[in-house]
Simulated assay, not measured.
Amino acid sequence: MNPTVVFYDPSFPYAGERPDAEALAQLRERYIVADALSLAEALQSADAYVHLHGPYFPKAAWLAILAHAREGKGLLSVGGAPFRIPVAENQGRWVAEPEQTGYHQQLQIHEALPVDPAPIASLAASREVPQFEGRERLFTIEPTYGVVLHVTKADDQPGQLGSSGPMDARLYPLLKGISGCGLEREVAAPAVLLENTKGEFAGGRWIFINQVIRERFWQQGGAEAIGEWAEFTSAGVTEFWLKPNYASYEPGDRAVLTLQGQRLGAKRGETLDWTYTVRLYKAVQTEVQQAVPGDFQLPGPL
């Protein structure tokens, strides 16, 4: 198994609270912690890349970062809008360039728009993809970003404006900002999962934590959480389809279900053992309802 590479450099620009000595020791014990000058070389043999510097990244290492992503490998970015401010070395000092979108657009992130944290009263992990369940306490409510994706590149209608081909990726919220005042609406997603199923980055599983992290994160087990999330991204994308043999059935018909899986990314050639649990639920209302033109009343009491 190839290692996980963590990019952290104490002399490099950083957004948020830096890891303390204990957290940094934990990261060094389990992973390769690369500085800005050694990052490009370290990424050549990595399964997962952990980027702790948020918008700041070494300009000289960008092609290596992009090559890592194109191989369908894992990516975890922490600390704000990802890959937005290139930093170059000038006479022994790190100099940040103006904020720009050209780099993260190469990762199919067209834009990262700021989200006001004022309506957020609490943070909650996603139930559908529970990777952050139990880790909500690590985060404080902070300004965050919403990513605008451009993951449809195939043009299935030549000559028309824009593209309307298949989606190359799927986006899932991992950590949600919930509003107060009794409404409890989902108003932000400070952490998201992007799974690349087709196209240039097929198989790549990426997590973006689009807010800065504070001292609480490092003091309450953030280094351990980073390891769990990095391992999750390194596994790559696996898709499953559960398909019936017919769209509908007559009474007495026996349904046949086919479970189909496909593993993508850098580890697609490796063999894995899977355990599946399939549950079949019977509808409470099994009586067939006949549609009546012009009748829009619901059957039964409301």
Rank of each mutant, 00 (worst) to 15 (best):
245 N>V: 11
121 A>H: 08
168 D>E: 15
146 G>Q: 11
291 A>T: 12
65 I>N: 00
275 T>E: 14
86 P>W: 00
128 E>W: 06
208 F>V: 00
148 V>I: 14
298 L>P: 01
124 A>W: 12
10 P>N: 02
290 Q>V: 14
122 S>R: 12
68 H>A: 08
232 F>N: 10
284 V>H: 09
280 L>C: 09
65 I>M: 08
183 L>C: 07
66 L>Y: 12
144 T>Y: 05
272 L>Y: 12
106 Q>H: 10
251 P>V: 14
78 V>E: 06
206 W>M: 03
205 R>A: 14
148 V>W: 06
244 P>R: 04
130 P>Y: 07
207 I>R: 00
92 G>I: 07
262 Q>C: 07
264 L>D: 01
297 Q>F: 09
294 G>D: 05
117 P>R: 04
110 H>W: 14
48 A>G: 09
231 E>A: 11
53 H>E: 12
54 G>S: 11
228 E>A: 08
136 E>Q: 03
137 R>L: 15
262 Q>N: 10
3 P>T: 14
25 A>V: 11
159 G>I: 14
39 L>A: 03
119 P>E: 10
43 L>N: 01
64 A>E: 05
10 P>V: 01
2 N>L: 13
121 A>W: 01
208 F>G: 00
240 F>K: 05
191 A>V: 15
187 V>P: 07
66 L>I: 07
41 E>D: 13
103 Y>R: 00
170 R>N: 10
175 L>I: 04
141 I>D: 02
128 E>T: 09
113 L>N: 11
194 L>S: 00
142 E>L: 07
135 R>V: 01
255 A>M: 15
28 R>N: 09
12 F>W: 00
84 R>W: 09
214 R>N: 14
54 G>Y: 10
172 Y>C: 00
143 P>S: 12
27 L>N: 02
20 D>H: 01
202 A>L: 03
104 H>V: 15
22 E>Y: 05
16 G>S: 02
115 V>D: 05
149 L>S: 07
270 E>V: 01
245 N>Q: 12
150 H>F: 11
91 Q>N: 14
210 N>Y: 05
122 S>N: 04
256 V>D: 13
156 D>G: 04
107 L>A: 04
189 A>R: 05
288 V>C: 05
22 E>T: 08
276 Y>I: 15
119 P>M: 10
16 G>C: 01
56 Y>S: 08
77 S>F: 02
66 L>V: 04
217 F>R: 06
263 R>A: 15
207 I>F: 02
250 E>T: 04
79 G>Y: 09
52 L>Y: 04
57 F>K: 02
185 R>C: 14
269 G>M: 10
